[in-house]
Write a protein that binds this DNA or RNA. Structure first.
Lengths: 345, 345
DNA sequence: ACGGGCCCTGTGAGCGCTCTCACCTCCCCG
DNA sequence: CGGGGAGGTGAGAGCGCTCACAGGGCCCGT
């Protein structure tokens, strides 16, 4: 089956163009230092033969793979409900594609899987890795560190102390949260609740910190931990309503959670935003625009974050075309957030 | 930077174990035909040295890559709103991982991108491809055909005539649609509307066919084309309500569309399911369970479909471990659907 | 007790590419 | 008009692995 004729080699191209393999190679790799007539002849031979370089052979000698692994460590919960990763992936894909790098997707499914991923990364199959969604106790960073694979993290990784040189791209979760609360207080709300994300993730923890920055002496009852899912949002909202039926605003740690909260509020007969103002985080369009009422939320440019992650990694890997538009050593990036006003607050 | 010590080679392992490179290789690849004491010695050497085979060198001689491309050709619309692809990806990832294959993700972003993908596939970087979401006029199948890359499609590809040997995995869209309508008529509904998906996709077309099978002489006004998105669902529902305010049921081509329709119905003051029964398709949990009311829908096992696609491809590629549990030539698979009753119909 | 065969192990070639280095051509300057 | 140098090109090695094949030990049959 699939008995494709053997693909032409550089040798064949060289022969057809009447040059040496070395010259053919030079042309294929940009053609610097080869005189014009030869360049043209080789190019034509490539064309006619439909030559495509054998990446394996090339990697064998260059030790580069032009491939980057994307590690997503949390398929259970978020990935499939939240367009968040999909958007980042898209940004990453665009950037990698633009620089002729491949995207190898590694979905980590469970505890044992970490070992597999570690082995893979250590195996030197890819030039670098883009890693997402680390929980506090995640063994992955350690493994990666050990593997010595250049890495950029999506979201500030949490490793209290040490290894602070890790590169990451994040949005300013803390300031975004402050902005949300500021908006709520600006609306005259005083009994503002916060439904957090899983606090073993820095994004959730940072947002909580931002909330506390503004609400230092609020009733601790007004904060309840959740998990970034709609169902979790519902649960948290019910809990909140029970504890403090008089609350007049809710800052949910992400849009999905807000959607769940909104539903419970409606059930309970509250009007949004009249009785309770609700604000989310992320501005994931299909969610934020489709809630009832449409969600006021803190926007982060997710796709751009993906793009930046890829760009950072490529620079870290010394990719020429990427390095030129930015000098100096690559460093982590924290993007600003913006408040998007819709109807819910 | 990242000046990792050079990774050990097979040569090093062989030396340490006191055997030849060939024997070391045999052990690394399963150890058949090597006597026990040697196997153990080599294994230990591998362990101690932390040896990982160089995939590039291996591929260079075997011409296998143990990597499969996943091509998703529609990032604009669905991928990011619909957990559909994410779920399939997960199934695919699990299956590939189980057989030590890598997943190379190719997101196709536009017209020009097709060429890039075609080139990549033709380049022989991967052993096979899993391709999603083909529109009628998609050039991709042609390119792939041309590239001679073993491929399995997600969803029945549409190429009227020819190339019918193409492998695919799909659910029984037509029968699923019939089942939906059957349920609705069973509820005593007679003025049943259908909001389709984009009709240049076979899944949408097949569902429409199924609808027509049951509603042969329905008012053609009751069918309106949409695009599988919530916003599209809203638009379609409004249109429908204008055309036939007396409709008493809606079969939406997917859950997202149904969610949009539900919202418009509520706005218009209709009660669901009392005034209008609504049924979706897919049973994408975060959507179907979270609508108001929860959505009755036609379930397809999306993750399983992904798993099957991968398995089919692996068999097609002659993967031993996969071939054993199924005899004969691999053939396309059409999975049954099941009706999931919730509150909306 | 001896030869044939089988099983196991090692040797060597070569996958397709890049890269170093030597060589050769031409140009320019003295 | 000749020599030095720069720029262009080619030869050859070798990346790390697998695979065909050769060769050597051991067991069995007679």
């Amino acid at each position: 089956m699939t008995d494709t004729a053997p693909r032409p080699t550089l040798e064949a191209v060289a022969a057809r163009a009447g040059v040496s393999r070395a010259t053919a190679s030079r042309v294929v790799n940009g053609g610097d230092g080869v005189r014009e007539p030869l360049v043209a002849r080789v190019r034509r031979a490539v064309e006619e033969l439909g030559y495509v370089p054998n990446q394996a052979a090339r990697s064998l000698v260059t030790k580069r793979h032009d491939a980057v692994a994307v590690v997503i460590a949390e398929p259970e919960t978020r990935v499939f409900a939240d367009p968040f990763f999909a958007l980042q992936l898209r940004g990453i894909s665009k950037e990698l594609t633009a620089h002729d790098n491949q995207l190898v997707l590694l979905l980590v499914e469970g505890r044992d899987d970490h070992a597999r991923v570690g082995r893979y990364l250590a195996g030197g199959h890819v030039d670098g890795a883009l890693v997402f969604s680390l929980h506090l106790d995640d063994p992955l960073p350690g493994l990666i560190q050990h593997a010595g694979v250049p890495t950029v993290f999506g979201g500030r990784p949490d490793w209290s102390g040490g290894r602070s040189e890790a590169l990451y791209v994040d949005c300013d979760n803390r300031e975004g949260a402050r902005e949300a609360v500021r908006h709520l207080t600006g609306l005259g709300r005083t009994r503002i609740a916060h439904i957090t994300g899983p606090l073993d993730q820095t994004s959730a923890a940072d947002r909580l910190d931002g909330f506390r920055d503004m609400m230092a002496d609020a009733d601790p009852q007004l904060v309840v931990e959740s998990d970034f899912t709609p169902a979790g949002g519902e649960r948290a909202m019910r809990e909140l309503l029970e504890r403090r039926p008089d609350l007049d605003a809710v800052f949910a740690a992400n849009d999905l959670t807000a959607a769940g909260a909104l539903r419970v509020l409606r059930e309970s007969g509250r009007r949004v935003p009249e009785d309770v103002a609700v604000i989310g985080f992320d501005d994931v369009l299909p969610v934020a625009e489709q809630t009832e009422p449409p969600l006021t939320t803190v926007r982060q440019d997710i796709e751009e974050m993906g793009r930046l992650m890829a760009r950072l990694l490529l620079r870290r890997l010394g990719h020429r075309a990427v390095a030129e538009d930015a000098e100096g050593a690559p460093s982590s990036v924290v993007l600003p957030t913006t408040l998007v006003r819709r109807a819910s607050a």
